[in-house]
Write a protein that binds this DNA or RNA. Structure first.
Lengths: 254, 254
DNA sequence: TAGTGGTCTAGACCACTGC
DNA sequence: CAGTGGTCTAGACCACTAA
């Protein structure tokens, strides 16, 4: 009934040793691990077993493998994302601000801006009929030129008026100001966090194996009872820490 | 440079087919998959390859393998955990309440109540010197007798006075009331969410492979500037959705 | 005991990279 | 081209479960 893996398996031991060597700094970030045949010789194992060991490290995000080149120690800068309620001073928590605070150089790339029929989940969150028109804004985010985040925003066309609501590219504050001008004053946020495997296209952009996990944060923005926007953010799970802060008001928690 | 796995590998295809069969309900939750030799025959593959395919499904949490018995389709009831700010009415979001709302039968088991020196991370969050005495309360949570969550609470002994602060076993509301009686009125919460591999002991209790991910939610509870409690919650990542809600106050987000 | 899953080998072949 | 990683086989042996 015990589901815990006995760590006696040789390939697990190898993974363990490599893991420790990396943590001790014997292999530096960016550096290449010894090749699989070489490790096989060193540990007296078959290449197949070595391959298995390295698969573990890949799934953990500790190592990044480039086919035909080698296995490289992954630099894993943990990034933090904070939501404060109420906000201490104005719009303190945009992506760009947080990256700069962490000493990283932020860049956002607008991948696509279009009007599309709403996919199922989105329609549901926005209270639309499936296929109802939504303005879709898709962005890729980089920190010091490393891809770190992916965001897709959906706004019902009836709320947005037109795609121009997001042109020229605006930060969220700008967007919500424009929504307010159209009579939709933002009053409430809901964020749902989910952990799942990366989709192939996400894995491609974020440089992950499809065995790796991402955090999906789906936010719905309300103006009164009316959902006016939903944003799906996708983060490599190993590289982020999400943080929420709020004040007590007769609180009780578990 | 493409890091996306080509899905041509036979073992990936097998995993894909089994995944679909499970989603179509061809294999029901709790049911056993065909044995590995049998699948090997069916797909014209070696058992080794089948084993690899099933390893993928394990890591996804879709299948639970019991050594010597077989591979069983895992029931994955997604559970939701919500934090509302401000709370709509009193203490609406305890573990027990949320489980009942989801139609599940909650049970909490007090595993251990003791006074210990504070571990590094805990001391840091509580603003203590490492090793400073803390009251440790460790709980296991079940939903309809399935282990679903794990919680360890740490309170500085100077704040708690004694272990009795948590005896008889109290819900959080009760705990915070007792803290208030001791002059610590809770005013602020911070929660940090992190995704990581399960530790062996966690994997044991939660019934996971150590390849599977958990969500760790570390909460710090403040009375003014004084941290009075920190709680570490651990959830099987695949089985939970975390949710946060708050009101806008001149908001701006990314 | 027979049936289940987990590991390992020795060797093969393929795919990709970079010279 | 040589060197890298990825997949697959045929067969072996081990560990665990249930009868």
């Amino acid at each position: 009934m015990s589901v815990v893996e006995t760590p006696r398996a040789r390939y697990r031991q190898v993974a363990e040793e490599l893991r420790n060597a990396i943590k001790r700094g014997e292999y530096q970030p960016g550096e290449m691990l010894p090749s699989q045949p070489e490790l096989a010789r060193k540990y007296g194992l078959n290449q197949t077993s070595i391959n298995r060991a390295i698969a573990l490290l890949r799934a953990e995000g500790l190592v990044r493998v480039e086919h035909g080149r080698g296995a490289f120690v992954q630099l894993v800068p943990t990034v933090k994302r904070t939501r404060r309620v109420p906000r201490p001073g104005g719009n303190g928590s945009s992506f760009a601000d947080e990256m700069r605070k962490a000493g990283l150089d932020p860049r956002t790339e607008l991948v696509s801006l279009r009007t599309d029929p709403a996919p199922v989940g989105v329609a549901e969150r926005l209270g639309l009929d499936e296929g109802g028109p939504v303005v879709v804004r898709e962005r890729h985010m980089f920190a010091s030129e490393r891809p770190v985040q992916l965001a897709i925003s959906y706004i019902p066309l009836t709320v947005a008026g037109s795609e121009d609501i997001a042109v020229p590219d605006v930060g969220p504050t700008g967007l919500y100001k424009r929504l307010a001008e159209r009579g939709y004053v933002v009053t409430r946020f809901v964020e749902e966090i989910e952990s799942r495997r990366a989709h192939p296209n996400e894995a491609g952009f974020l440089g992950l194996t499809d065995a790796q996990q991402v955090l999906e944060v789906a936010r719905v923005v309300f103006a009164g009872e009316q959902p006016v926007e939903t944003v799906v953010n996708v983060f490599p799970a190993q590289q982020w820490r999400l943080s929420y802060e709020w004040n007590a008001e007769g609180a009780g928690l578990t």
